[in-house]
Amino acid sequence: MRSSDHRRPDRGSVALEFAGFLPLLLLLGLAAVQLGIAAYAASQAGTAARAGARAETDADFPTQGAWAARHAVSGWLQDGHDEFSYARSSGGGEVTVTVSIRIPSLMPGIQDWGHVERSSTMPSD
């Protein structure tokens, strides 16, 4: 009998082990992408807070802070009614703007990752 005609009893076991391990790899990949989405939402909240604070301190358009903050954020991060919130406080010659953005979910079964909040303070005129 030639060695090429002989079939080993464990043939295909690597493919079977990979098929069993594949869901774990996919879940790990989704978790990495979800972490990136959370970091992106935090970055966008910081950008919106700075844009809002800058607009609030502008003497020509002092009431445009919320508009500027909302338009500084990517559209898919502010689509719903609970996705984006804006708060302004002032005192002592400063304006502080706080923006909160809900972190979108990519993971199946987990819909609420919470909100990310960033603040920016600028001197007022």
Rank of each mutant, 00 (worst) to 15 (best):
T98W: 01
V116G: 04
F18W: 08
Y40R: 11
M1P: 11
P108V: 00
I101G: 02
A69I: 01
S43V: 07
A19Y: 02
T63A: 11
T98G: 10
G20L: 15
A19K: 01
D125W: 14
E94D: 10
G46Q: 05
I110R: 07
L28Q: 03
G65E: 04
W67A: 12
G80L: 12
A59L: 12
V73E: 08
G46P: 02
D60W: 13
L77W: 07
T121M: 02
A41G: 00
I110L: 10
A49C: 05
G36D: 02
V116F: 04
T96S: 14
S124A: 12
G12H: 03
A59C: 06
P123V: 15
A39M: 07
T57P: 05
T57L: 10
W76K: 07
E56P: 04
E117M: 07
Q34A: 05
S4Y: 13
D112A: 04
S120W: 07
G109P: 10
M1F: 14
S90M: 13
R54W: 05
G91D: 02
M107L: 15
L24A: 11
R8P: 03
I37T: 15
G93Y: 05
S4F: 10
L22D: 12
S100E: 02
R118N: 12
V116M: 01
V99D: 06
Q64C: 02
A72P: 01
F18Y: 07
R50I: 03
V73I: 07
S85D: 10
A55T: 06
W113H: 13
Q44L: 01
A69P: 01
A66M: 00
T96G: 10
L16N: 05
P23G: 04
G20H: 09
P104M: 00
Y40S: 07
T47D: 10
T98V: 13
H71R: 08
G80A: 13
L77V: 00
Q44I: 02
G36H: 09
A51R: 03
D82Y: 14
D60F: 15
Y40P: 00
G29S: 10
R118S: 13
F84D: 07
L35S: 06
Q34G: 06
Q34V: 07
L106V: 15
V97P: 01
G75M: 04
G75P: 11
R50F: 09
E17W: 02
V14M: 08
G46L: 03
R7L: 09
S89Q: 11
G46T: 04
A87C: 08
R70M: 01
G29Y: 02
H71C: 01
P104W: 00
S3M: 12
S43L: 03
V99R: 08
A45T: 08
A49F: 07
L22H: 12
G93E: 05
G109D: 09
H81D: 14
L28G: 11
L16D: 04
P108S: 04
A42C: 01
V33N: 03
G93A: 03
T47S: 13
G20F: 15
M107V: 15
M122G: 05
L26W: 08
G80N: 14
A31Q: 06
S74W: 13
F21W: 11
G92K: 12
A38I: 08
E17P: 02
S105V: 05
A19T: 02
T96K: 09
P62C: 01
G75F: 10
Q111M: 05
A41T: 12
S4C: 03
R54T: 11
S124L: 13
Y40E: 00
G109Q: 11
G20R: 10
A87Y: 08
